[in-house]
Design a protein around this nucleic acid. Sequence first.
RNA 1: UCCAGAGUAGCUCAGCUGGUCAGAGCACCUGACUGUUAAUCAGGGGGUCCUGGGUUCAAAUCCCAGCUCUGGAGCCA
Length: 455
Amino acid sequence: MQTETTIISRYKTYHYIENLSQYVGQEIVLRGWVYHKTGKGKLQFIQLRDGTGIVQCVVFRGNVSEEVFEKAKELTQESSVIIKGTVREEARAPSGYEVDVLDIQIIQLTKDYPITPKEHGDTFLLEHRHLWLRSSRQHAIMRVRAAVVKAIRDFFDGNGFKLMDSPILTPNACEGTTTLFETQYFDLGKAYLSQSGQLYAEASAMALGKVYTFGPVFRAELSKTRKHLTEFWMVEPEMAFFDLEDDMDLAEDLVEYIVHYVLKTCRRELETLERDITQLEKVKRPFYRMTYTEAVEWLNKHNVPLIRKLDGKEVEEPFPWGEDFGAVQEEALMEQFDKPCIIHHYPAKVKAFYMKRDPENPELVLAMDMLAPERGGEIIGGSQREDNYDLLLERIKEENLPLDAFQWYLDLRKFGSVPHSGFGLGIERTVKWITGAKHIREVIPFPRMIYRIFP
RNA sequence: UCCAGAGUAGCUCAGCUGGUCAGAGCACCUGACUGUUAAUCAGGGGGUCCUGGGUUCAAAUCCCAGCUCUGGAGCCA
C-alpha cells in the first residue's frame, strides 16, 4: 500500500522502508525492529522492519568499526535499533533493495522474544496477540483491513452518503434479547451493547436521506466457529426511497469497489498472504442473484439435504421450503460461483421483524444476503424495511418485543413514512474473504470471542 | 449451549498395549564461516509430564473429577 499523502514533520525527517526506491545511492537513517538475523562470519544480515515494510541490512566487517560489527552480532529478534546506511539496488532481495550498514544504535536489546520464525500453535499465538501483530502475515492482513475500511469510507463519502454514527449503549434490543451484552445504566435500568446500528440509521436516513453508520457491534451469541466474533465492526448504509432492487445494486457496487481498491493498493500484502489474485479479479458487477425459492429448488435438484438431529441421530431429508440455510447449504450453493451471489426474497418467518413483506406474497420478506465465493460465507445481510405503521406494530407484538422501547422507531412510520432500505456489511468477514485468512480472529487486531478476552 | 478432541522443556511435538520414558527439533549460551534470509557445523544449560483424587509393587501412560484450550454445529455479519 502506498501512502497517498506524506506528512513532513517539522521536527524530524524520517526515512521509511516503503519509500526506499527514492533513496538509491543515498545515506539514510532507518528506525525499527530486528525481524530476523543471520550471520556468516564477517557478514551479518539484519532483516529490519519499521511498520511500512522489511528490508535486509548488510553489515560487513570490512566496512564498519569493530564496535559496530560487535553490535550487529549482538542483535536479537525484535531489538529496537536505529541504523544508518546506504541504499543499494539488489536483485537478490525480495523488495529489490538492500541497505549497506554504516552505523548501528541499539535502543533496546530484546531478550527471549517469544514468537520465533518457527511454527507456533493457535493458542500460543492468541495469548501473544500483542506481539503476533508484528509478524509479516498479520502485518499484511492489518494493512488490507485498513484499506478495506478506507475503501468503504471513500465509497460512501463519494456517493452522497453522510456518516451518522449510532449509539453503542442502547435501551432496546434490535433482533431479540438472548444475545445481548447487558450492563447497568445508572438509575435508568439495563442498557445493552448495540448489536446493530440499523434502527438509528433508519431515523438518520429520514433526516439526511442517504446515511451510513460504521462502528463496533456486540453479540453475546454462543458461537464458536471461525466466522464469529462477539465484537466486530459493521458498516450499515440506510437509504430513504431505496427499494430492495436499489439496495442490492448498492451492495454490489460497494463490494466491487472494495475488492478493486484492495487489488489496486495492496498488491504486496496479497503476495505476502499468497492470495490467488485472479480469483479477486473476477469480482465485477453484475454478481449472481437468485431468490430463496430458486435456491431451495437448486439444493433439492443437487441432493443437498437438510440434516436434522432426532434423538441424537442425524436424519437427512429433502430441504423444505421455509427452513433457513445452514453452513452446508451455503457452501454447496456457492461452490458453483466464482464471484458473490445475492439470495433474496426469504420466508418471513426466518427473518427479522423490521423487514418489509413482499406485497405479492405475504409469506416472503424483501430481504437479501450476499454470500462470498471461496467459502467467504455471508458478508452482507439487508432488506427493504417495513414502512407501514400497522404492519410493523403487528410484527413487534408477534415477536413479544417491548413496545415502549420501540415507540420512537414506530414514530418513523407515523411522520412522513417512506420506502427505505439498507444493509450491514461485516468488516471482518469481508477482510477474511479478501485475504484468505483461515480464521476470523486473524483479521481484527484484538479478537473478542466466546472463550477469549485477553489480551 | 451441544458434539468431538488436546494439555510433556521457552516453542512445535514424540513417548501413552503400565517397568532405561524424562526425549527430539527449534529457540537460548559458547565457538567456526563474505551471501544468509526457517542458514549450516561442533559443544552446553534447560522439566510441577495441566490440577486433584484413585487403581498398582510401580503411572507421563489406566480410571474418575475439575480447569484451560482447540475444532465443528446451531445462530448470525
